[in-house]
Structure formats: structure tokens, C-alpha cells
Design a binder for these strands. Structure first.
Length: 568
RNA sequence: GAUCCCGUAGCUCAACUGGAUAGAGCGUCAGCCUCCGGAGCUGAAGGUUACAGGUUCAAAUCCUGUCGGGGUCGCCA
């Protein structure tokens, strides 16, 4: 058990002793006071005050007077309607530093997930389209969620589902033959190339009924898997998939499996047939649909009137395939918030099919630009490759200026890490469910609440340790300054942050906790000497603190899918 | 029209899910490198939490309404 949990248990014991049978408090009743001068743990007395028909402030005073501090709690005091508990600062520092030193790269981890198997579906990109900043948010979020669940003791299967059929693909093939026949995109340019073709095709077919009919024919041929169009598709799809896989590698995604729409279409069709037989899917206006109006979910179209299948149908096949492959306890879909209804329809349909697994839609908000929504027509899409090279270039410039003696290779390597830290942190630092405005200028600034700031903090820690002639020591820990204690406190809450986040996927909380820790450390660093401290025992204690900070920030960043550097 | 989400400092976001004095970053202003990395630190200014009611010991948070922004609503995902 981590320190803070133990301390809370100690506080609970005292409360139970004071309250007797009147009320049995649990961990959720405890809070963290807004200010450290008010202690480390707080128990509000409003609820029990109401139950006992007593004034909460009086109750708090009574409770505080009734019991004497014990265990990790060294002091308790009533302040208004709250009972506040202070944790023994010395013991806290000692235990936290030892916990970090013992657990190392697993500090913050737990076994609460009991190895339950959780599927995390994310990075659902489309072939024949481009990859842009919106997808970056998806990839960053999915990766972080998977890592955090794993840290909480779940057995996680991260995987992607690639849409490589469907109307968009047909549209793109049509445009390819019409405008770019026989062209082959250069390696690394596949996504951008198809993005352009797709955009061109879309505007060309807009007012062209004949074109729409042609595209519909193409799609049907693709679904049947034969004919000239399928031949062409096999080639372009390979190119496109290579482009997507290059992005996955570049972004550092660990996907255990990549499902392709084209592979599961067959079983999807079968499921639709079964649904029709069972009467769950019905014929309506030429299409096959599932009527979900009574659940307030409208109508889910599975098969269009031209006979081709929609994603609602294909996702059914995918769900079944995943069930066969993994028998998960829980399934999480990381999908854009705009598809809330579609996801709800999918879950509802699966339920009607008899699916009993826990299904969750981890939805995330839309990414827009300061000048408004991205639009391929207006040419305001920020492509993955373009953004990353701009960030890397900017980081390289800064790095070069700081390290004139570094060769270009080293500069590029570090710049790359900084660039990824910047973009991933930017995507993860705000509440997933909220829309965000992606300001390229801000993401290039590398200051303040940013990934590079955290890398910088780690680098400073590493240099301190490297330059020191001593090793950190845990034997006799002396950290009396308030700056050091603030750092210890920030270290102590980290495990709870991870655990909580594994439950609600609010990944931004981890980003925030790391920033709080880094800020506390920066203040400590500016105010308190480490290597220049004359007293050896104090010096070695501070070194231990520095080591713990570096370790914890690194752990947290890794959960967010961010690598660190020793120097920058 | 129906339905869902959102509205907090000039800008971008927090606020432990109903708790104590609403906090950060950017930007602005004023300081800090003869101790370890200034991608940093310290401080200041900046708020009627869109508005109006209501619920209760307590509301940025819950309810109702108004205004404003966005998403979705039968063949694109």
C-alpha cells in the first residue's frame, strides 16, 4: 500500500474511534484540504452533522478533542466544520522516497485491475485519407489510456481497426482513376497523396449524380471482392496501409493487432443476415435498419439501399471477432465525440444480439484551429507529417543554439523526442471530452504547461545527479524545507492519480499531476541548494529527492506515451 | 424543429465530480544568472464562473428558463 493510502487508513481509524457507532466513514469521505497549512487530509462533518442533527463545526471540535494522534497522523485539529489531519512529514518523506526507490519504473503502479482483460480500440484511421491533428489526439489518448490501465493492473490489448473499404475508399479510387491514373505516391507521402485525391474526388462528385452512381458501383464491387476495381484497390490499399503503419511506428504506438475492415466484412454480412432472420433488422425505405427509436437512438442503418454495408454493420462483425479472439472482460472504444450516437446504436444493437460484455465509448472532443474548424476544401488541414516536421525543426533550432558542440545526429534525436513530448502533452493536458483549439504557435513555444517543460525538469534532475560526487541516500532522510516537503507531497499523490485515472480515463489529470510535481521541484531547485549543500546527510537526502522526482516524472510521461531525455 | 454537449481572467485550460479564500499556462508589467541548466524562478495586475430564477448548511458544479457557440438527427464516417 502506498503511503497516502496508509495515512488515510490511519486517519479513518481515528475517526472511527471518535465516532463509534454513529457513523462509519470510508476513504471516499476524506478530502485533500485546499491549502497545505490546513493539513494533509480533511474530513468534512456536514453529512454526519445532518444525520445526527448537530452543528458540524461543533462535531469537528469534539472529534478532534476525543482522540490522540496515532500512526502516520501526528496532529489533528478542527477547523470550522472540518477535521484536519497532518501526516508526519519526516515519515512521509522517508516512506515516499523509499517507495519510489524500490518500485523504480513501476512507482505508481498497482494490481487493482486484477489482470482483467480490457480491449482498447483506437487509432482507427482510414486508408485513402490523410492523417491530421485530430487523429493525433485519438492516438495520444488511446495510447495513454491503454498504458494507464496496464499500470493499474489490467491486462490490456491495444488494437486498431482500419477502415479500408466503404464509400470514402470508393470515392478515392474513382478520383484516382479520373485524375491521377497510374501515379504512385512516394514513400512517406501516401497519406498526403490520397488525402488530396479524396478531396478532389469529393468536390468533383458533389453535384454529379452520374459520378455518385459510378462510385456506388465501385463500392459494391469492392465489397464483393472481385473485378478491376478490386485489383486497383489491392494496390492502392497496400500503399495506403504502409503509409498508416509508418505513422503508427513514428508515433510509437504499440498495437497488438490491427483489424482491417476488408477482413471482417464477410462475417459482418453473416451477422446482418442473422439479424434479419431474428427480426432485429428490418427492411425500410430500401435499406436494412435496426429501429432504436424506443431507446431514443433513432434508426441505425446497416445496409444501404444499393446493397453496400455501413460501418454500423461492419462494427458488429468486428465486435464478434474480438470476442472470439480475446474473450475480453471489458471493451473500450476511443472514438470522436461526434459519433456518440453511432456508438450508442452499436452498443444497443449488440445488446439485442445478446452481447453481455461491458462496452464503453471513450469519447474525445473535436480538434479545431484558432481560425476555425479544419477543412480540406479550405486547405486548412494540419497534416500529421507537416506538423511533426515543423515541431522537430523548431526544437532542433533551439537545441542547436544550446549545444553548439552537438552533432546534427544528436540534435535531431533530441529534437524529435521534444517534438513528440510537445504534441502529445498538448493533446492530453485537457479533459478528453472537451473540444480543444490547436494553436500551432503555442505548441511550438515549449514553455509553461508543456511536455518540454517536463523533459527539461527531468534533464535538470539527471544533470544534478550526474554532477554530484555522492550517491543519494535513504538511510537518514532530512528534508525540512517547505519546498522539499511540497515536492514530497506531489510525489505521494502520484499513485492515486494513476489509479483514479484508470477508472475514469481522465488522462489530463496525470498530465496535471506531473506538471504540479515539476513546478514544486522547480521551486525547490531555485531555492534550495543540492550539491552545494555542505552537510553530507542533508545533501544525500536531497539527492534522493531529486532521483525520486526524475523517476516519477519519467514514469508519468511514459504513461502518456512520452519519452524523456537526459540532456536537452 | 428534435436531441446531446459546451459557456470560468484578454487568450488556452483547471477546480479532487456539491465543500474551505475559483487556480495554472500564455500574454502584459516589475524583479532574479560571482550555488548546481533562465525551455527556469519570484511577484503584480487581471473574475458578478454568459444571464435570471430555484434546490440546501454549502452551487462554477444539480434543476428550470433565456441568450450565445458547437455536434448529431435514414443511406459519409
Amino acid at each position: 500500500m502506498y503511503l497516502l493510502q496508509t495515512a488515510k487508513q490511519d486517519a479513518l481509524k481515528l475517526l472511527k474511534a471518535a465516532l463509534g457507532k454513529a457513523y462509519t466513514p470510508n476513504v471516499d469521505d476524506l478530502e485533500v484540504p485546499p491549502d497545505t497549512t490546513m493539513g494533509d487530509i480533511a474530513f468534512p462533518c456536514f453529512v454526519i452533522g445532518k444525520g445526527l442533527k448537530r452543528n458540524p463545526a461543533e462535531l469537528a471540535t469534539e472529534i478532534a478533542a476525543k482522540v490522540a494522534p496515532k500512526g502516520l497522523v501526528v496532529k489533528l485539529e478542527a477547523k470550522g466544520p472540518y477535521v484536519n489531519f497532518w501526516i508526519d512529514a519526516g515519515k512521509m518523506a522517508e516512506r515516499v522516497l523509499k517507495e519510489v526507490a524500490t518500485a523504480k519504473e513501476r512507482y505508481g503502479y498497482s494490481v487493482s485491475g486484477k489482470k482483467k482483460r480490457v480491449l482498447v480500440e483506437y487509432a482507427n484511421l482510414n486508408t485513402h485519407k490523410e492523417v491530421h491533428v485530430g487523429h493525433i489526439r485519438n492516438m495520444a489518448l488511446g495510447q495513454a489510456a491503454a498504458n494507464i490501465l496496464r499500470a493499474a493492473g489490467f491486462s490490456v490489448v491495444p488494437h486498431a481497426y482500419i477502415n479500408d473499404l466503404g464509400n470514402a475508399v470508393a470515392r478515392c479510387l474513382w478520383g484516382y482513376r479520373k485524375f491521377h491514373a497510374d501515379e504512385k505516391p512516394e514513400k512517406g507521402e501516401e497519406n498526403a497523396f490520397f488525402g488530396e485525391v479524396y478531396a478532389k474526388a469529393t468536390s468533383a462528385m458533389e453535384d454529379d449524380l452520374a459520378a455518385r452512381e459510378e462510385i456506388s458501383v465501385i463500392q459494391r464491387e469492392l465489397e464483393e471482392g472481385k473485378g478491376e476495381w478490386t485489383k486497383l484497390w489491392k494496390m492502392t490499399n497496400r500503399w495506403s496501409l504502409n503509409g498508416l503503419k509508418a505513422v503508427f511506428d513514428d508515433f510509437g504506438l504499440e498495437l497488438e493487432k490491427i483489424y482491417l475492415e476488408s477482413d471482417i466484412l464477410k462475417s459482418s454480412k453473416k451477422i446482418v443476415q442473422t439479424l434479419i432472420k431474428k427480426g432485429i433488422a428490418v427492411h425500410s425505405e430500401g435499406a436494412w435498419v435496426v429501429r432504436l427509436e424506443d431507446e431514443g437512438l433513432g434508426v441505425s442503418i446497416l445496409v444501404k439501399s444499393d446493397g453496400t454495408h455501413l460501418y454500423n454493420a461492419k462494427d458488429l462483425g468486428l465486435a464478434q471477432k474480438k470476442e472470439e479472439d480475446y474473450r475480453p472482460d471489458r471493451s473500450i472504444y476511443v472514438v470522436d465525440a461526434r459519433q456518440k450516437q453511432v456508438m450508442a446504436q452499436l452498443f444497443a444493437t449488440l445488446k439485442r444480439m445478446g452481447f453481455k460484455k461491458e462496452l464503453e465509448h471513450l469519447s474525445y472532443g473535436h480538434v479545431s484551429l484558432p481560425e476555425g474548424a479544419m477543412s480540406s476544401r479550405k486547405g486548412t488541414i494540419i497534416r500529421y507529417q507537416d506538423l511533426m516536421s515543423a515541431l522537430e525543426e523548431s526544437a532542433a533550432k533551439e537545441t542547436r543554439a544550446r549545444h553548439e558542440d552537438w552533432d546534427e545526429d544528436r540534435v535531431a534525436r533530441v529534437a524529435r523526442t521534444i517534438a513528440f513530448a510537445a504534441v502529445k502533452f498538448f493533446m492530453l493536458r485537457s479533459d478528453p471530452d472537451k473540444d480543444i483549439v490547436f494553436d500551432a504557435r503555442e505548441s511550438l513555444s515549449f514553455e509553461g504547461f508543456s511536455g518540454p517543460y517536463l523533459l527539461y525538469t527531468v534533464a535538470r534532475c539527471r544533470r544534478l545527479l550526474e554532477k554530484s560526487e555522492d550517491k543519494p541516500s535513504l538511510d537518514d532522510i532530512r528534508l525540512s524545507s517547505k519546498e522539499a516537503q511540497a515536492v514530497v507531497r506531489a510525489l505521494a499523490v502520484f499513485p492515486e492519480t494513476v489509479l483514479k485515472t484508470a477508472a475514469d480515463y481522465q488522462v489530463s489529470r496525470v498530465a496535471q499531476a506531473l506538471f504540479d510535481l515539476a513546478q514544486a521541484f522547480s521551486t525547490f531547485y531555485a531555492q534550495v541548494p543540492v550539491n552545494a549543500e555542505p552537510d553530507e546527510i542533508v545533501r544525500k537526502s536531497r539527492l534522493a529527492l531529486v532521483a525520486a522526482v526524475a523517476q516519477t516524472i519519467e514514469n508519468g510521461l511514459h504513461l502518456l506515451g512520452i519519452e524523456t531525455v537526459d540532456e536537452m
